[in-house]
């Protein structure tokens, strides 16, 4: 399950874009761009999301001084019907494209594939990442935006954001990818679609444990282990799971969650943020910058995804979940 990247592909540049609501995010100052209109001045939310993805990619290309044709691969996904926003964005980008779906874990699964392609020298420049759009996603998975349904304290708020990274050959002065773990699909029988943290925590636990075991590491070998969007309650559950398997308090402090921190302590967002764009936008802005500045030397990013659909939920199925992890170091 653990993949070692001997050539250590580097994250050459990152691009993150967020919607107007994300001004309230604690990570707001790390984003490259924030837009005023949640539809990006497009007619539909889905078109707006496609525009948001394009914008993130353009930011990356500007930073790295590249043109559309320089990008060998575009690896990305989102949560809307058959990933149409990503597909439409890829149409404009005009590079080789593989649509990827691991729900909110797509931010990392795409990075793993991009690293593999770079490792194989099949790609010189690959863009990997994910996005989510609140209005488009909520509508797809839950109720209409203005529908008055009472959400429990475990519910999370899908963010409007996109985060992308440009992966290329190893550069010692940039964060580099040394190993990745492709997670299994774990299902502990959670059926409540408003308790994603509870559904996904076992998947994160499984993947992180597998990665540590495969790499023969301890939790304390890391400066930071950051999960994707478990939310406040999901993160507590994950820590409790590690505590039960013998982790000490100082080890538990290594764990953080992008979703739990995204909107700070604002209770309007209940258990915190979620969505593929949540982990992607935090990883490919805040984490990248923190590593570049030298605050973190070795981090494990573990994005979790709930692999449900509105159909599977209505048919009474449980929620299968997955988690993918990637280990990034800074020399």
């Amino acid at each position: 399950m653990v993949i070692l990247f001997k050539t250590k592909p580097s994250i050459l540049a990152c691009g993150s874009v967020a919607g107007p609501e994300e001004r309230k995010s604690v990570f707001y100052s790390y984003f490259d761009a924030v837009v005023e209109d949640e539809r990006w001045n497009q007619k539909t939310n889905e078109q707006g999301q496609a525009k948001m993805i394009q914008e993130a990619c353009e930011i990356i290309m500007n930073k790295a001084n590249l043109k559309n044709l320089d990008i060998d691969f575009f690896l990305s996904g989102d949560l809307v019907n058959q990933m149409t926003p990503t597909n439409f964005a890829a149409r404009e980008l005009a590079s080789s494209f593989i649509g990827m779906f691991s729900a909110c874990a797509t931010s990392i699964s795409s990075l793993i594939v991009a690293s593999l392609l770079t490792e194989l020298s099949a790609s010189e420049y690959a863009i990997a990442g994910a996005s989510s759009h609140h209005n488009a996603t909520e509508r797809q998975f839950r109720y209409p935006i203005n529908y008055g349904g009472q959400k429990p304290a475990t519910a999370q708020w899908t963010v409007t954001a996109a985060g992308y990274a440009l992966i290329g050959k190893h550069n010692p002065s940039l964060p580099s990818i040394v190993a990745g773990t492709v997670g299994k699909v774990i299902d502990y029988g959670e059926v409540n679609p408003f308790h994603m943290g509870g559904a996904m925590a076992p998947a994160a636990f499984d993947t992180i444990t597998a990665h540590l075991k495969g790499r023969n590491q301890k939790i304390s070998d890391y400066d930071l282990i950051m999960t994707g969007d478990l939310g406040k309650i999901g993160l507590k559950i994950l820590k409790a799971m590690f505590a039960q398997t013998g982790a000490q308090q100082n080890e538990l402090d290594v764990f953080r969650d992008a979703g739990a921190e995204f909107y700070g302590e604002d209770e309007a967002y209940l258990a915190g943020a979620s969505g593929a764009g949540c982990s992607a936008a935090v990883y490919y802005s805040y984490i990248e910058q923190q590593m570049k500045s030298g605050r973190y030397k070795r981090v494990l990013l573990c994005a979790t995804g709930a692999l449900l659909s509105p159909l599977s939920f209505q048919q009474g199925e449980t929620i299968p979940c997955t988690a993918h992890a990637i280990e990034i170091t800074m020399e």
Binding site: A153, T154, Y188, G189, E190, H195, G198, A201, P202, I233, K236, I237, A240, M241, Q244
Partner: peptide, 12 residues
């Protein structure tokens, strides 16, 4: 089963 216990304990 073990997980269920942890989850129930932590979920408000």
């Amino acid at each position: 089963q073990q997980y269920q216990q942890i989850e129930d304990q932590i979920t408000p």
